[in-house]
Design a protein around this nucleic acid. Sequence first.
RNA 1: GGCUGGGUGGCAGAGUGGCUAUGCAGCGGAUUGCAAAUCCGUGGACCUCGGUUCGACUCCGGGCCCAGCCUCCA
Length: 465
Amino acid sequence: MLKVYNSLTRRKEEFVPIEPGKVRMYVCGMTVYDYCHLGHARVLVVFDVIVRHLRSLGYDVTYVRNITDVDDKIIDRALKRGESIQRLTARYIEAMHEDADALGVLRPDFEPRATESMSDIIHMIQALLDKGYAYQADNGDIYYSVSHFEHYGQLSGKQLEDLRSGARVEVDEAKRDPLDFVLWKSAKPGEPAWPSPWGEGRPGWHIECSAMSTECLGAHFDIHGGGMDLKFPHHENEIAQSEAATGEHFVNYWIHNGFVQVDEEKMSKSLGNFFTVREILERYQPEEVRYFILASHYRSPLNYSDDNLDKARAALQRLYTALRDSGAVDAGSVEADQEYVRRFEAAMNDDFNTPEALAVLFELVRAINRARESGSAEVCRLAATLKQLGGRLGLLQADPEAYLRGPHGAGEEGPDDAEIDRLVARRDQARADRDWAEADRIREQLEGLGIVLEDSPGGTRWRRA
RNA sequence: GGCUGGGUGGCAGAGUGGCUAUGCAGCGGAUUGCAAAUCCGUGGACCUCGGUUCGACUCCGGGCCCAGCCUCCA
């Protein structure tokens, strides 16, 4: 039985889909005006694993992840770069896809864009106007009237009064209430604009997600996800918009992932303490980044440091070492060990507890190595189990030797394989001659190049440290 | 100020009302020409103060500390 922590109720709940056997899920994606940083990578990977797990349980999942391709930041950035908005967003959308692909993130089933959803957005705004939840201000902008929505604050646990007294909301003369938020911004010169019943303009940020999710998944769907920082006001506003416009309950389960932190502080653009995915991939393999993300529970903070990435590398080396020479190449055709599968699923069914699931993988590693030492025929089956379960997390699908020998980052320079093989062969000769001094000298030389040797009865092999 | 979430061994990071997390690092042993990899064994933790209980790191309450949201942010 799958249990999910629901941000709306603040407790773990049994997951029951609206329609048996089917899951409809929406995740807030990126605003494309810059490269993905590690925080974006976390959202991508976390929800990718959630989708993979739901599918492994047999659910038919429809996964929607939007792209925000028009907003103030995009407009500013395009202006500064002297580049058209279309060119800018196209570039960053492509970059995002490259990063997501590198990290082993499966593509969502639908990836709607705000600029391609204008009629849905306009229809929803019109519905809100018709029902009295929205009004047009003197400046032409359309606002959502927060006080008209009875349940405003249910997701974030905030009272309207508390929010008002918080008083950090910028006072805008056009608004009737400082907490009202914009649905449609009337066009200013030089800005991109679309025609609407209220004149040329563009949508506010919150309305696009309401419109796109409703369009792709219906007025009522199962899961809505995103980063913690979107809980308020973005998701709160989405609920207000969608439920007011459709009259239906919007989402059953809200899932929010925790932040990536640097030195105990949130990684964010405004603080300038962020690392882009491509920067990190200069020095680490994508799978190591993915492992690093999954080594913490999705709701916990994830502290970025080289030390923690190095630990991810060490962990993957142990996993892949167990898979080496195990006959698990074609793991899918081997029946998995059901006891380990059961424990893995129990961990994942407990609110997607990936650290616990990884612990099961390491217990499999020990079982494999033990079986190997005792010459048991179980090695292949256990290794196949490890590879299958790793696959459910999007890990361990590479050729073990290729992973262990591979360079550690896209930017790494080092000796090529042929050169290493040549040195290893020379050392083998020295060892055959029992010239230990020469053998050790070559080994140290290789060590200096970041190559570790492993002698075994079957011969010497090497990997990158 | 209001609202979330959290404080676990050297580090990272799960979990449980009484029983080994797991990984890295450490220590002892096996193995090895020496290493590496691997195996076996081992030390080490539950912020603080009360309460509930036969028994709490685990449940409840107070305190302290940390992060986040209340403004764009994954």
